[in-house]
Amino acid sequence: MTNHDEASAVRPLTLAWVRRHLEAGERIVGIEALHGGITAEMRRLTIGTRDGGTRDLVLRSFVDPFSVERAEDWLGREAGALTLLAGTGVPAPALVAVDPSAAQCEYPSLLMTHLAGRTVLDDEGVETRVPLLARQLVAIHALRPAEQPRDYVALTTADTVVVPKGADAAAWAAAIDVIRRPAPPGEGRFLHRDFQPGNVLFDVPPPGPAGARITGVVDWAAASWGPADLDVAHCSTNLALLHGPAWGQRFAEAYEEAGGVLAATASERLYWRVRDGLACSEEVRSVAQPWREAGRAELTTRAVEQRLDAYVTSLMDAWG
Rank of each mutant, 00 (worst) to 15 (best):
A81T: 06
G125L: 01
P149A: 00
Q148P: 11
G80V: 10
L57D: 03
A158W: 12
I140V: 15
R144D: 11
V162C: 01
L57I: 01
T113C: 04
M112D: 00
R150C: 11
E127F: 08
A92Q: 01
A154G: 12
D122N: 15
T160M: 13
V161S: 07
L57Q: 05
T88F: 00
C105P: 01
E69Q: 15
D56S: 15
E69Y: 10
A154N: 11
E124K: 14
E127M: 08
A154S: 14
G76V: 00
L143Q: 11
A134Q: 11
E106D: 14
D73S: 14
V96L: 11
F66A: 15
M112P: 02
A139W: 02
T88M: 01
R118Q: 15
L115C: 03
L110P: 02
A116P: 12
R129L: 06
A92C: 03
D99Y: 11
A97F: 12
L133C: 02
V153N: 09
A79D: 05
S61A: 14
Y152H: 13
G89H: 03
L115A: 02
V162T: 13
A142I: 12
V130A: 06
A134H: 11
G125S: 05
L143S: 02
R77T: 08
R118W: 09
P108W: 02
L82M: 01
L85V: 01
A116Y: 04
L133V: 03
V98Y: 10
Q136F: 06
H114R: 14
D159P: 06
F62C: 07
A97P: 03
A97Q: 04
S67E: 12
D64A: 09
E124Y: 12
T157D: 10
V161M: 10
T128F: 09
A97K: 06
I140R: 03
G76L: 00
Y152K: 08
D56C: 15
E127W: 12
E124F: 10
E72Y: 08
L111E: 09
Q136V: 00
S109G: 09
P131M: 12
L57G: 03
A102S: 15
V98S: 10
V63N: 10
V120I: 15
D123P: 04
V96R: 07
D99P: 05
A97I: 14
G80M: 07
V130R: 01
L121S: 06
G76Q: 04
L57W: 06
A102R: 13
L155W: 14
G117T: 13
T128D: 14
L121V: 11
T160E: 12
A94I: 03
P149K: 00
L137A: 02
L132P: 02
V162D: 04
M112A: 07
E78T: 01
R129F: 09
G117C: 10
F62N: 13
E124D: 14
P93C: 02
F66I: 12
